[in-house]
């Protein structure tokens, strides 16, 4: 049994909130810079160049790259031989979010009740996902989620008879309907299978995968490539002003499902698909 004080979790979450909001991951920055070279649309090239400049300015000055510093989605992957000491783990995560958003001059974007809508003032609570795995380490991933893109996400429980064609139609219809709203170029996470909530969580986790990576299953890797190309034929382009670069990446995560269903969820991520990780 390895003991980890929750104070360490708090400080780690705080640091990762600031890092995720001010440092665009290298793979995303490289994809934006590469697209700025190849984009056919002059408006699109101008927007992509602005986004690279924005990311560099944010990194240099410590200012958030986007004012929507998101709702803090925190993934804790905890080894079963870890014991947390010194207080409540969930409270430590929320305290870390409050610290990070205050110290980093990040925006408080969370309301306490979806209908009454009073801002909690410190961006808490986080959305916390905990998974127990073998081992004695704990991995912390903070993925602040902006809602311009979150609002353009969708979930459908298709009939198995709709098959892969149904999945493709759902993805293209969802991206097409979103148009300029989710701040393209987007990163697209797709969850296939499981139950309703499992599909949504798979889609969210798919957003954490590196740009350019592929699902290890050959048929899913092929589907990722086909869908990414199809999305980039829609013409939406950077900032939705028209162009070839609508999505930088598209990743699928899959899980077994029920004989009666083909769940599919699409989680839309903006170009600032932010995440930062640490292992304790």
């Amino acid at each position: 049994m390895r003991e980890i004080d929750v104070g360490i979790v708090r400080r780690t979450v705080a640091r990762l909130c600031i890092e995720a909001n001010t440092v665009l991951p290298d793979d995303v920055r490289a994809a934006l810079a590469a697209a700025a070279e190849t984009e056919e649309s002059p408006y699109g090239r101008a927007v992509l160049a602005e986004l690279v400049e924005n990311a560099d300015l944010a990194r240099r000055t410590g200012m958030a790259m986007c004012q929507d510093t998101g709702m803090a989605v925190v993934f804790l992957t905890v080894g079963q031989d870890v014991r947390f000491t010194g207080g409540s783990l969930a409270e430590a995560v929320d305290a870390g979010v409050a610290d990070g958003y205050r110290e980093g001059f990040l925006r408080a974007s969370v309301v306490s009740d979806p209908l009454l809508r009073t801002n909690t003032g410190d961006n808490t609570p986080a959305v916390l996902h905990v998974e127990i795995v073998p081992g004695d380490r704990a991995e912390v991933v903070v993925a602040p989620k902006g809602f311009g893109s979150e609002n353009m996400s969708a979930l459908r429980l298709l009939s198995p008879s709709e098959g892969v064609e149904g999945v493709k139609r759902f993805v293209l219809d969802t991206v097409s309907a979103a148009g300029p709203n989710p701040c393209p170029p987007v990163v697209i996470g797709i969850g296939l299978g499981g139950t309703m909530e499992k599909a949504a969580l798979l889609a969210k986790r798919a957003l954490l995968q590196p740009v350019g990576s592929r699902n290890p299953a050959p048929h899913l890797a092929a589907l990722e490539a086909e869908l990414l190309e199809a999305v980039n034929r829609l013409g939406i382009g950077p900032a939705g002003l028209g162009g070839r670069t609508t999505a930088l990446a598209l990743r699928i995560e899959a899980y077994p499902t029920h004989i009666a269903s083909l769940p599919v969820a699409l989680n839309m991520g903006c170009h600032a698909t932010r995440h930062a990780a640490a292992t304790l």
């Binding site: 927007v47 602005e50 986004l51 400049e53 924005n54 300015l57 944010a58 000055t61 200012m63 958030a64 790259m65 986007c66 004012q67 929507d68 311009g148 300029p180 701040c183 900032a239 002003l241 903006c270 170009h271 600032a272």
Partner: peptide, 13 residues
């Protein structure tokens, strides 16, 4: 008018 979504640091300047 449209401003570039996601360019929050540049616009702040």
């Amino acid at each position: 008018f449209g401003a570039t979504g996601g360019a929050g640091a540049l616009i702040a300047a």
